[in-house]
Design a protein around this nucleic acid. Structure first.
Lengths: 127, 127
DNA sequence: AATGTATTAAACTAATAAGTTATTTAACTG
DNA sequence: CAGTTAAATAACTTATTAGTTTAATACATT
């Protein structure tokens, strides 16, 4: 279950809608397919894609195959995003600034020209 | 620039590698294409996909078109993930445990060797 | 103006993806 | 057993994608 498969699976609005429904709780294929103007086999295929991507898991209860969210793949996405968070996350900027403060605690006044926004590749983003 | 396009763009390892390179700083198409065993037009196409997805932006300097990361689309992914964070995030452990209690209301006997911190998702036998 | 360098566009091919309808498997029900 | 319900599979169509090679564009240098 690769990032490839996971991102690919998420690139479809039907599949994201299915996930959104599953966030409310485990349910059956028939139930899942109701909101969509497409055949059941089509939904079934979407579920297979989601399953292969590690985004859902399927159980078995009599003739139903209840689907539920499988957190691992979502966590993988989140972990991948971690490498880029510094590009968009405000709170990271604050953490970044805070860490810098700690680092330069001794130099009381020196650090004021934080205008050199060279976040480009400094060590600031490392974990 | 939809989530569709963004996830689709990220579903390719070449394009993710390009982003990883751009995280180190803005650079040219030729430079970006060096690590890959494919033609320049192929890389150029990947860049177009990334640009259409809002993941990169391109400037212009003489005959070069330097590429850089565009944070917005990444933020969009992060915002989308937010709806699912409770399924995998440590900080939701207590909620997670609570939901599991509801789910396994009848299984008070079966679990004996289960460590408290195994909040994977309860299937223990997967993958 | 002519040439070189960086990049994109055009035209094509092969593989994959999303949907369809029809058929099949699996489990329950009377 | 026959019939019904839930879901998956098969076979097919159409559209999109990732790559190719060849050609065109844009700017820089001489």
């Amino acid at each position: 279950m690769s990032l490839d498969a996971t991102f690919q699976a998420l690139a479809d609005p039907t599949r994201r809608a299915i996930l959104a429904r599953l966030a409310l709780g485990e349910t059956s294929v028939t139930e899942l397919s109701k909101p969509f103007a497409m055949s059941m086999p089509a939904v079934s295929k979407h579920l297979k894609v989601l399953e292969r991507a590690g985004l859902i898991a399927r159980g078995r209860e009599a003739q139903w195959r209840p689907c539920r969210i499988e957190p691992r793949a979502l966590k993988d996405i989140d972990d991948w995003l971690e490498h880029y968070r510094r590009f968009y996350d405000e709170s990271f900027d604050r953490l970044d600034a805070y860490l810098k403060t700690l680092q330069d605690e001794d130099s009381s006044v020196k650090r004021e020209s934080k205008k050199d926004d060279d976040h480009g590749n400094g060590d600031s983003g490392k974990k």
